[in-house]
């Protein structure tokens, strides 16, 4: 336990970077995923195919492979991220948005068809009816699965620190263990603790939001 306290400054700076990656990738993935879900239910076949193709390719790719492609693959087409935090945010956003898309799409499908039909009858366009009538109801039903995606995302950021040059919480583990041989279990316990500092309050917040937004049927 002493080894965690002694290295609190490292854990803290890693914690801030983990939080930055999680929030940035979370916001981007939520926006991108929602747009993709819109594509998947849109009346335009090419857009539907694009959404479906994206989900099927990205959701079935291991996150580490996505990282390798972004960090080492894009530079080969002259697109180099000078900042590895930025590269990590891109990889995490690309990956997570596929999951967000499916969650939001399931929410859209849970909204009674009559709602969309009524919106159309009032003369709203597809985009208007989706944005003002369907999505607000859809999001209320998908709070728990979106929370799952968020918590998975927070923990997925550790791939960036574990192997892709981002100094996050997971990153400092190996060097602290190197400097304190025999302390591996405590160091990993410390790593787990700092992730839980993000995930446990998130879980509590999610269940609050869930209660507040629940639709009484």
């Amino acid at each position: 336990m002493g080894v965690v306290v002694e290295n609190l400054d490292l854990f803290w700076s890693g914690f801030l970077r983990t939080l930055l990656m999680s929030v940035a990738a979370g916001v981007i993935a939520l926006l991108l995923g929602t747009v993709l879900a819109g594509f998947r239910v849109s009346p335009v076949p090419p857009l539907r195919a694009l959404g479906t193709g994206y989900v099927n390719v990205v959701r079935n790719t291991p996150l580490t492979a996505v990282f390798v492609l972004v960090v080492f693959g894009l530079p080969q087409v002259d697109l180099t991220f000078q900042n590895y935090v930025l590269a990590a945010i891109v990889a995490l956003s690309v990956y997570t948005s596929a999951f967000v898309c499916e969650v939001v799409r399931s929410g859209i499908n849970s909204v009674a068809a009559g709602q969309a039909e009524a919106a159309r009858a009032l003369g709203l366009t597809f985009r208007q009816s989706l944005g003002t009538v369907v999505l607000p109801q859809a999001f209320r039903t998908v709070v728990p699965p979106l929370g799952n995606v968020w918590i998975a995302l927070v923990k997925n950021t550790s791939i960036a620190g574990g192997g892709f040059a981002v100094a996050d919480i997971a990153f400092y583990g190996p060097s602290i263990i190197r400097d304190n041989p025999g302390s591996a279990l405590w160091v990993f316990a410390g790593v787990a603790f700092f992730y839980m500092v993000i995930t446990v309050p998130s879980a509590i917040a999610i269940s609050r939001i869930e209660r507040r937004t629940a639709i009484v049927r």
Partner: peptide, 14 residues
């Protein structure tokens, strides 16, 4: 700092 030396080699190549 990457996780493996092969990744460092890739970064050097790029």
């Amino acid at each position: 700092l990457f996780g493996e030396y092969s990744q460092c080699a890739e970064a050097l190549r790029n």
